Structures are given as C-alpha cells and as structure tokens.
Amino acid sequence: MMARGLPKRKPIVGVKQILLVASGKGGVGKSTTAVNLATALKVIEPEKEVGLLDTDIFGPSVPIMMNLHDTPLLTKDNLMIPLINYGVKCMSMGFLVDEKSPVIWRGLMVMSAIERLLRQVAWGPVDYLIVDTPPGTGDTHLSLIQNIPITGVLLVTTPQSAALHVTRRGAVMFQNLNVPVAGLVQNMSTVICPKCSNNFSIFGNGSQSLADELGIELLQDIPLDTKITEFTDAGTPIVIAQPESNQSEAYITLAKKILHFLSKQQVSTVEKKRELS
C-alpha cells in the first residue's frame, strides 16, 4: 500500500543510476563504506563519472572523508557545481554551512535542503551516484524514495545483535517500498591482533543469518582496522591511500559486486520498457 501511494519519481538530470548506502543504525560505518565504494568505482572504471551525495543534513561526513571544504561555485543557471576529489563529484550540506555550526532545523527545512541537493546541483554527467544516507528510516529516506528513481540500496551493519535488529527494520522498509536491495555489508566484522596476527570476531557473526532471513547476499566483510580509520579521518580513502592493501581490496571487491548488480538492474529496466512498449 505504501509503494502504491508514492508519487511519480523524477530522474536527476544527467544521472544514470543511483545507489543508496543505508542502515537503520547509526555508527556502523555507512559513510566510510560510501566514500570507499565511490572511489573504488572510479578506480575500477576511470572512464565512468562517479558522484557522491551526502544526505545527512545534521551530521555530514563527506567533507572530512573526501578532504573537501570549499563552497561550491554556481553555473550561469544558478546550479551548484559539485566539488571533486579523487575523480569523484561530491555534494554535501557540509559545503554550505560553517563546519563548526550545528544545523538546527525542523523537518520541512530538512526536506527542502534534500531537494536542493538533488535538483539544484549540476550533477551531469554521472554514471553512478552513491548516496550516503543518515541513520533511521525517516523523512530523508522517504523523500529520496518518493522523488528519484533509485536503482538499489546497499545495507551496512555491524555483527552485533543490536545493530542487526535495527538494520532489519531498514531492510524491510526498502523491500516494502519496492527498492531493490543490492546486498549487505558486514562492517567491523573482525580485528587482527597487532601482536599475534590472529583474526578475532569481536562482535560476533550474525550478519549472514540476517542476509539469509532477508533473502539477500552478504556481499563483503570489512574489518575493524586502524588504517581505514586513520586514512578516512585524514581525508584520503584507503582505496586511494593504499590501493594494494588487503583493506583496499575488500572495497574493490565490494565495488565489483555492486557494478554487477547495477548492470543487472539496467538490463532489467530496459526489458521492462520493451514489454511496456
């Protein structure tokens, strides 16, 4: 019933495919995943245009993680020009407000800001737009689902039961609204002891059970690793900073699986159009 009540979605000018990175739970590494996924896509397919949209109005992370702090310039049509680093076009509320000032807004103002980030940005051409979403299953997610054609959503969780429980809610929301789920990323899955080099699952390993329950694939395990954190905080995704590392390879593998999903969705869309015609 919710899906049938949605308005007609309008594409973003110049954007071909849109992938949300989401989880009902906060603090599970959505932004880190989104940033490394976007840069990994650009590394794998340098001839393609990749965009990264930060829709967390209250706690934007992309400016720090992508080392971008300027104010966007405007085109002659008053569209904001995305900032670019590592070949990825980026837009965030963090580019438009002072980084030390909190955003204290009600829901309608947040929705207006989301609309501006979607429609008043000179995105095109973009082959893959990765959208980093805030925690929860609220206004931002519904606004995105209602207003733009979403190719799919990548769910991010950590293995402990509290995170899995909330991630399940997010997954059910997307499935109920007919948004294809690309799969699940288990973040902070293991940690390697710096002394003995043994690999420990400090938070358990419940993500595979959730994936099985939801009928989706567990696409990748991402370790809890100081290098990922250090490079992310320094504004250089590990995919760029240490491209030959095991940590980088995990994101590259994830990006390849996402490209396969996006390709399948594109073929499915073309076939549906043919059937309708």
Rank of each mutant, 00 (worst) to 15 (best):
M2S: 13
D225Q: 09
I84D: 12
L210E: 12
I240C: 04
I192Y: 04
P11S: 11
L224C: 09
Q220R: 12
A40K: 10
K273N: 14
K30T: 04
L262H: 02
E217M: 11
G170Y: 06
S207I: 09
G107R: 05
K10D: 00
I145R: 05
L218T: 13
Q220L: 07
V185W: 04
I222R: 05
S248G: 15
T229F: 11
I240E: 11
Q247G: 12
V131W: 04
K272W: 00
I222W: 05
L83F: 09
L259P: 06
V179M: 02
L52M: 06
G14V: 00
N176D: 13
H165N: 15
Y128F: 14
K257N: 04
Q208S: 15
V21T: 05
A211P: 12
K195F: 15
I18F: 06
P125G: 02
I252W: 00
D132G: 01
I192W: 01
Q160V: 00
V267D: 14
G138T: 07
K16Y: 00
L68D: 11
N85Y: 02
M173G: 10
P63S: 03
A34G: 03
I44V: 13
T226D: 12
N205G: 10
M66I: 07
K264S: 13
N67T: 11
A22D: 01
V28R: 04
F58K: 11
G107T: 08
L218C: 11
G204I: 08
E115R: 14
I238K: 01
L37D: 13
K257E: 08
L254W: 03
K30A: 05
I192N: 12
I84V: 15
G183K: 03
G152T: 12
P237K: 02
P72W: 10
